[in-house]
Design a protein around this nucleic acid. Structure first.
Lengths: 340, 340
DNA sequence: TTGAAAGCGCTAACAA
DNA sequence: TTGTTAGCGCTTTCAA
């Protein structure tokens, strides 16, 4: 049987309201009584029951995290950041994997509402505006981290300047010479806004660099090492001027590398290779692959801090201001694009 | 303002207990009343408040998951299994990362107790018997998944037969001939029971295969690709009979591969290479690396199912029986050990 | 500065 | 089969 506030009150000879005041520091309590209460708390190891607290406060110390999936390294590092900071502010996180299904997103929002979560961190490929309205109406603080389509106005979010990062990446794989680029990505799937948005960003970045779209061919179907191998093969046989490869996933990078190796092409001398976002593989394979390193942990941490602040502001019924945090990325140049 | 049981009761002209009976199907209710209540529930979108429920039931629909860290692929797949099955039984999971610190394990157990979690899934490198006693005393159902030291008696756990798997792995890298083996592992750190236990298992497996310990040298310090490269280099210069390499992490595997490649050794013809447990890298690099594939998702799923059953049994105050689930692994042979 | 009491939304024992 | 009621552990008004 755990110790309750009643026990503490009885044992220290005061009323439960006084004990409540002591543990919450919510109203002045004479110091000798406070000491007495603290002593009893210490002795008994009393811990307030968060469930009872949530019931009366109509708010839990729970932050719901809706995520497309926590398996990928890029996601789990982010989640570590969320969890650690949330816990620092005494919030627990509850994870909801949507596997990119928007029906699951809706279901989870309802679930989280019923759990009376204090706030929601919403990681998604594209923001469901309908759902966002619903969230706003039920006045649950929400912070977004979007992997895909651009932000809609009036929301809190965390991101990096992906276009700028892509521009820098392109700079690394291109030279002043008139080389052609191929961009390797998996087959188009429905709902895969993540890849589509990388493509959008690529196009914007090309524009900024004044590179004609015709110089950069987007190749679909680079899902596996083997498929990529063949795709690169046929592309390079058709166009001898391809001297830059940008790939969107590990498999495509390896497939390219192996094709080049088998055909006597040296990276980076003959062909430069980059992968959009850094993974564990880009760091340790040979040659090292140039890529954009996202501050994943920090992004998660910032999300958590933002949501906690939102929650506190709402409690003090301060007026809400929109928070947009653009964090710094790092472009890591490795051997795969280095001029000698 | 969310709809409460009171609202539903009033609107359907019955008492709240009747509504409670309807939603929990706990006592017979005449069918016309039940229909009326359901209709109101439907119309209002009423969802029972789980917080209030937890308070009176003294039990939440929460399963605490204590894990050394959720970043690695091997862990997150497991956690996906846990989460999905738990959710199926209407439990939420709350994740606690210990980063292998045993002080954090203790703190989290206390935290989870105060949250009145219904059960705990405890993933750890070695079981803290003290803590387990505490858990047993507070009668919170607990299921273990241990990455390290052997099981202690009287606990519920999920695992695969790691020794048997290792035996099979060794069979793949050795031949009838008298070749020497090196086993590459990271530097010894305190608390790293995971690596130590792999070593223990290796030794047991060698014994079973009647391979003298002197034929298999354990090399420490294979933390990075570069360090491994040098370690393999010096080991192979000293001993020309090394024809098998087993590595415990991706970095060590790649480092070995690169050394062999640079020195004209062909894998698997000259040297066979295997990595203990499969990762994404062992699957996609060239050559494919033979390794043990753990049924990660299933292990997580089984853990979740076990804990739910434990919880239900405890509620029905059935006597507890110990559950030990040994799941089947797969030894995946890839090119790195294949005889032609 | 302190205590009594109401009530958060729900379940379950008891009564009818 | 249904309703009344107590109470889960806590916060917070209201009085003293």
């Amino acid at each position: 049987m755990p110790v309750t506030i009643k026990d503490v009150a009885r044992m220290s000879g005061v009323s439960i309201s006084t004990v409540s005041r002591v543990i919450n520091d919510s109203k002045p309590v004479s110091s000798n009584i406070r000491d007495r209460v603290f002593k009893v708390i210490e002795e008994t190891g009393y811990v307030p029951n968060p469930v009872a607290r949530s019931l009366v406060m109509k708010k839990s110390q729970l932050i719901g995290v809706i995520t497309p999936g926590s398996s990928q390294y890029t996601m789990s590092e982010f989640l570590n950041g969320v969890e650690e900071i949330a816990r620092m502010y005494e919030y627990d996180t509850i994870l909801c994997n949507t596997y990119c299904e928007s029906s699951k997103e809706i279901a989870y929002v309802d679930l989280l509402k019923s759990k009376q979560v204090a706030g929601i961190i919403f990681i998604t490929q594209n923001i469901n505006e309908e759902l966002d309205k619903k969230l706003k109406k039920s006045s649950i603080p929400t912070v977004y981290y979007t992997l895909g389509t651009p932000m809609i106005p009036g929301i809190d979010y965390v991101d990096v300047d992906r276009v700028e990062a892509f521009v820098k990446l392109i700079e690394k794989v291109t030279d002043k010479d008139d080389r052609d680029i191929i961009y390797l990505r998996p087959e188009k799937k429905e709902d895969d806004y993540k890849e589509s948005s990388k493509e959008e960003i690529l196009k914007k970045a090309l524009k900024k660099k004044n590179i004609k779209l015709s110089k950069c061919k987007i190749i679909y179907g680079a899902d596996t090492v083997e498929k990529t191998y063949k795709l690169v093969e046929s592309a390079m046989k058709k166009n001898k001027n391809i001297k830059s490869i940008i790939s969107s996933i590990d498999e495509a990078t390896l497939g390219s590398l192996y094709y080049l190796q088998d055909n006597g092409k040296v990276v980076p001398d003959d062909v430069k290779v980059a992968q959009v976002y850094e993974t564990q593989i880009t760091k340790i394979i040979r040659p090292g692959i140039t890529s954009i390193s996202l501050p994943l942990y920090d992004m998660g941490a910032v999300c958590a801090r933002m949501i906690v602040k939102d929650i506190e502001n709402r409690e003090k019924s301060k007026e809400k201001k929109i928070n947009e945090m653009i964090l710094p990325y790092t472009l890591v140049e490795r051997k795969s694009t280095l001029n000698n």
